[in-house]
Simulated scan of single mutants.
Amino acid sequence: MNKDRMISNFIEMVKIHSPSLGEKEYSDYLIEILKKLGLEIYLDEGYKVYGGTAPTIFAKLKGQTTGEGITLAAHTDVVEPSKNTNPLIDGDIIKTDGTTTLGGDDKAGIASIIEVLRTIIEENIEHEDIYLILTPCEENGMLGSKNINWDNVPKHMIPAKDVIVIDNSGKAGLIAHTAPSRYNFKIIFKGRKAHAGIEPEKGINAIQLASIAISTMKMGRIDELTTSNLGSIESMFPSNVVADLCVVTGEIRGHSIDTILETLDIYEKCCSVATNSFGGEYSFEKICDFPTLKPLDDLKFANKFAKIYEDLGVTTKLQIIGGGSDSNIFAEKGYNSIIVGVGMENVHTVNESLDTRELIKTTEAIIKYIKKI
């Protein structure tokens, strides 16, 4: 592999503005590179459903040997503020001037993928089919992966079931294999409006109903693998009006769907008790934002990749993580994902940095894995 070329490519990419819903310029840039490398490309137009600007890029480098192949995945959007990124090199560390995010999440992953492809092609390394899935809008609720029209993907472009997602924060050697599902909930409390100073007795305060219900809900860590959090409480009324509407939103995430649903049932009972005791009404909405990610092969794939790292002298750690990613969405389609680190630190902040030594290690590991399968 050409380390300097990969780092130079990364720096070039982070200068291209590609926020969620605005990845077109960067997507066009990547499509051109992949075409020059000789990959076959299919562009999914799911972005039209949610008002985006860039497709999910499916690409394939046909192999010379038979087998299931391997899929490499990353996302093309970055967290704001990211316009006019000024990358600064400090030894092995790349960071910004502190006014923007760096975009290592996930352009470091894409830099790794491009260098893997270039190295495989230039060194004439025999390999099985290599597939790519590069998604837009991952940072905005995984909208890109959620809206892929899988029925339209050409059969020969359907990616291999084992997926290396190059999108884990932290060092090389970190291999995430399990992640929780997340359910969002929305509770609408309805009371009765009245003048707060003249006849408050005629009113039922929806904010008070919400407060009573929330006070009896267990929040934070529910158990070892389940968490809950409130995101907003909205009720905009002047102080001289008994508020008749209050909207509460939150989330529960966990590795057991049964536990998530049981907790949501308990929350709904809290709402019922509050409204039955003081009057008023409520409605309770819940929706699965993304499913769980679990290994489909008893960690065989994760351990196989860990062995590659260890052969390179990289300490490994298999991880159960608390966040969601495209891997969760792919899991519903039967994909078996691992999420590997490339040296990203302090992601989603203007203090974000990338340790290029870790980027190099993971890129070397992917190349070695492809040689062995």
Rank of each mutant, 00 (worst) to 15 (best):
S20N: 08
E23S: 14
E23I: 12
E25C: 06
E25V: 14
S27E: 10
D28V: 03
Y29E: 03
I33H: 13
K36A: 11
K36Q: 14
L37Q: 14
G38S: 08
L39R: 15
E40V: 12
I41R: 11
I41N: 06
Y47K: 12
K48N: 09
T53H: 08
P55W: 03
T56A: 13
K60P: 07
K62G: 00
Q64K: 15
G69Q: 10
I70V: 14
I70T: 08
I70S: 05
H75L: 02
H75N: 02
T76M: 15
V78N: 13
P81S: 03
S82C: 15
S82E: 08
K83V: 11
T85P: 02
L88P: 01
L88D: 01
I89W: 02
G91R: 03
G91C: 05
K95D: 02
K95W: 06
T96H: 07
T100G: 08
L102K: 07
D105A: 01
D106K: 00
D106C: 12
K107I: 05
I110L: 14
I110C: 02
I110E: 08
A111L: 04
A111Q: 02
I114L: 13
E115Q: 13
L117T: 00
L117S: 00
T119H: 13
T119W: 07
T119C: 10
I120L: 05
I121E: 00
N124I: 04
H127D: 03
I130V: 07
Y131F: 15
I133Q: 02
